[in-house]
Design a protein around this nucleic acid. Structure first.
Length: 418
DNA sequence: CACCGTCAAGTCGCA
DNA sequence: TGCGACTTGACGGTG
């Protein structure tokens, strides 16, 4: 089983993707943006390798206007060596990647222009995976599209248009149930008819349910039959409802207990799980640590080094509790550890606790910073106490100093980004 | 440097 | 027929 995350990272340096507006596009700018974004992608892949994350979705924003005539650059040739270099890292590390055109790529539209743009977009995604040199187990995930008051016709349009696609797209295309129009039963029927693997998305199924009597595991095992040898392991999407937002919104983090309940009910290892969640790689690491057979406390200690200042800021009591929890070096208290983290993150941050955490982090700079940095920091604390500036303004300053003074321990901390 | 409107896509519900 | 909501992170302009 591989567990992974989609598109972006938290707390990993130099991994942001840049873009621009359509009216500002020119060749020079595009080259610059693509070059930047490929560097970011490489940094993400390096991070994944280092953290043993074997599943990752590449953002469709990798190449700005990649499927639009606005971008007529032969970018796959211009950057071919960089792309294949990244592809080599992916392949030799055994990572599995994917891409996922958004809800706006609609292959079954009655509007031929929309369909043609959808095909262009699928070609674009294929071009990236081809340029990376990865095989047919690296998938492109697509939704079926709109209904247009006539589902049967809409489905047959999907089937007709799918047939028009060229083989390099077909060998990677898989389809997924959505939260509005096509439930898992619909998608399974289409997938079976066309011989396309089906991705089960648990939250979409919860919201757009075909049969309330059937549980997740029923559908997951049914989907398994659509995955052939050349497709690699079955894949699925897993997410949890954000309890404070409206139906379908992804949670900030994957709640440990709920995930484990799912994992144990699933009872299978021959499936890859793509998490869709706000805290991205953080939840991926969490779920990997939750399910690994290599349950050494070192994993939790590494995590703790990244979370600790955030926890100190949120809940000094839990900070002490977690330290106690990690004392026994032969133990692997993964459930308690992440439960403490999750509970702490929900706590209300007080001014006093926030300043306490700031001062702990400041400890790294107390003796090495310049006078004006010291003055600026203490002034910021006073301004924050009086409500003149926000905590994030001070954190940004400390982050800049972290980079400037190359404080390795802090460079890996989530404190600046959570 | 913080803030916020805008962008970009296609569908669908509602006037 | 037309328009706003939906979604997302980043741009781009303002103060």
């Amino acid at each position: 089983m591989s567990i992974g995350y989609a598109c972006l990272t938290i707390g990993v340096q130099n991994t942001n993707l840049r873009s621009c507006t359509a009216k500002n596009v020119d060749k020079e700018k595009l080259l610059d943006l693509i070059s930047h974004n490929l560097n970011s992608l490489e940094n993400i892949i390096d991070y994944n390798i280092k953290n043993n994350i074997k599943l990752f979705r590449i953002s469709s924003d990798l190449i700005p206007f990649g499927s639009s005539p606005i971008n007529s650059l032969p970018w796959e040739e211009e950057f071919s060596s960089k792309l294949s270099e990244i592809g080599e890292k992916i392949k030799t590390s055994g990572m599995r990647i994917s891409m996922h055109p958004g809800q706006y790529t609609v292959l079954n539209s009655p509007n031929i222009d929309v369909v043609n743009r959808a095909i262009d977009d699928l070609n674009y995604h294929t071009k990236i995976l081809d340029a990376l040199g990865v095989g047919s187990e690296h998938k492109i995930v697509l939704h079926i599209g709109g209904v247009y008051n006539a589902k049967e016709e809409a489905i047959s349009r999907f089937i007709t248009n799918y047939d028009k696609l060229n083989d390099s797209i077909k060998m990677r295309l898989v389809i997924e149930n959505d939260d509005k129009s096509y439930n898992i039963n619909d998608v399974l029927e289409i997938g079976t008819k066309l011989g396309i693997p089906v991705i089960f998305d648990n939250l979409h199924n919860e919201i757009n349910c075909y049969d309330k009597e059937k549980n997740d595991v029923y559908w997951i095992n049914k989907c398994k039959r659509t995955w052939k040898e050349k497709d690699g392991n079955q894949k699925m999407h897993y997410s949890q409802q954000n309890l404070l937002k409206k139906l379908g919104s992804h949670s900030n983090t994957i709640r440990f207990d709920q995930f484990m309940e799912f994992y144990e009910r699933l009872g299978r290892e021959d499936i890859d799980i793509m998490l869709e969640v706000k805290d991205k790689n953080l939840s991926a690491v969490k779920c990997i640590n939750a399910t690994t057979k290599d349950n050494k406390i070192k994993r939790l200690e590494d995590e703790w080094s990244k979370y600790k200042y955030t926890i100190l800021e949120n809940s000094p009591n839990n900070y002490l509790e977690i330290r106690k929890l990690l004392k026994n070096k032969n133990d692997y208290p993964v459930a308690s550890f992440y439960n403490f983290i999750e509970i702490s993150m929900e706590a209300e941050i007080t001014v006093g606790n926030a300043i306490n955490a700031l001062l702990h982090v400041w400890g790294y700079f107390k003796n090495i910073s310049e006078d004006k940095e010291k003055k600026s920091f203490y002034k910021s604390i006073e301004d924050y106490k009086q409500g003149k500036i926000s905590i994030s303004a001070i954190k940004n300053k400390l982050w800049k100093m972290t980079v400037k003074y190359n404080q390795l321990y802090l460079l890996n901390s989530y404190y600046f980004f959570l």
